[in-house]
Amino acid sequence: MKILVIIPCYNEEENLERVVARLQKEAPQVDFLIVNDCSTDSSAAICKANGWRFLDLPSNLGIGGGVQSGYQYAVENDYDITVQMDGDGQHDPAYLEAVLAPVIAGELDMAVGSRFITKEGFQTSFMRRLGIRIISATIRLVCGAKVRDVTSGFRACGKKLTAFYARSYAQDYPEPEAIVSAVLNGYRVGEVPVVMQERMGGVSSINLLRSAYYMIKVPLALLVYRLSIRRKAARK
């Protein structure tokens, strides 16, 4: 079984080598692909110097467009399962097996790694948790899926869903919207417990004002998105 770990990266020169070292130690059997979303730091140079497999986007697309190019790579190179994992060290490769298991077993088309099931490890700020709750409730409302850690970028996808994402992947608020689009197109989405860490170095792109803005904007976007598409029958 060919497995590809997609690591989106924007200005992660401080974390990249540690993240990859940990991944190679925990899961030497999987391939990984770094998607450098036009970083302004030395991320690309680090990838090149280490001889890693990486995509070098010539312009900044944001996380949605970046991850989608990873899915396109997976389709072109015939991978069976793709895993998304952040490049900032929040996601511990030790839990790779946990997110992979339900997809390998064929129980789910996408397994999202959730930090809110066992409530261990890094739980993020109160404001962000509140926002995540609101978005989670909205997702339940628009498509019925019960996902708690909706912004988690630690997720495994089966082959069919990978092909679907390669064709169409949410761009504006990719993590929550991708869940909704998968469910409405008949894919099975579920959660598995993982423990997350606080990012190792660098600066997160999310602050207080942004998270307040985010928790109003995203539910609205999801509602509009729901109104604009039709639910498709479940896939076998």
Partner: peptide, 14 residues
């Protein structure tokens, strides 16, 4: 269109 072009370009470059 620009997004698709960027992605196709990155895949080809790789």
């Amino acid at each position: 269109k620009v997004k698709r072009l960027t992605q196709a370009n990155a895949l080809l470059e790789e």
